[in-house]
């Protein structure tokens, strides 16, 4: 399903393979709980998001479809209806670094 504006831009969202999509949804309880309609709506947004954004990595991290779909699926949920379009037309790039986090680590292992 390609919109007229997408064709104008020369961008055609690629369909996410079903197996990868199911695996991504299953990994996050808050995505797993979505209704069938909500999952389909999210998938369309994620595909458009991936077509529009440029992903890059730092260090030795290899950029994979799993990484891109995982981040897009989580990120497109909170913005799924309210502010999604402005986000999509905002910054074009997204970088993923490979490192650890003090904040995350402190949450996972409370002292």
């Amino acid at each position: 399903m390609t919109s007229w504006i997408d064709r104008l831009r020369g961008k055609r969202p690629a369909r996410i393979p079903e197996a990868l999509w199911c695996k991504t949804i299953a990994a996050y309880p808050f995505l797993k709980a979505l209704t069938v309609n909500e999952k389909n709506e999210l998938k369309t947004k994620v595909e458009a998001f991936l077509a529009e954004k440029e992903f890059s990595t730092a260090g030795s991290l290899e950029l994979t479809d799993d990484i891109c779909v995982s981040i897009a699926a989580q990120g497109c949920l909170p913005s799924s209806t309210s502010g999604w379009a402005p986000i999509a037309s905002g910054s074009a790039s997204l970088s993923i670094l490979m490192n650890s986090s003090y904040r995350g680590a402190s949450r996972m292992n409370p002292a």
């Binding site: 990595t57 981040i71 910054s91 970088s95 993923i96 670094l97 490192n99 995350g104």
Partner: peptide, 16 residues
């Protein structure tokens, strides 16, 4: 108006 930079290590710690 610029990029979003995210640690993949942290993405994998999602939950709770």
């Amino acid at each position: 108006g610029g990029p979003l930079i995210i640690s993949w290590h942290d993405v994998q710690m999602a939950g709770d």
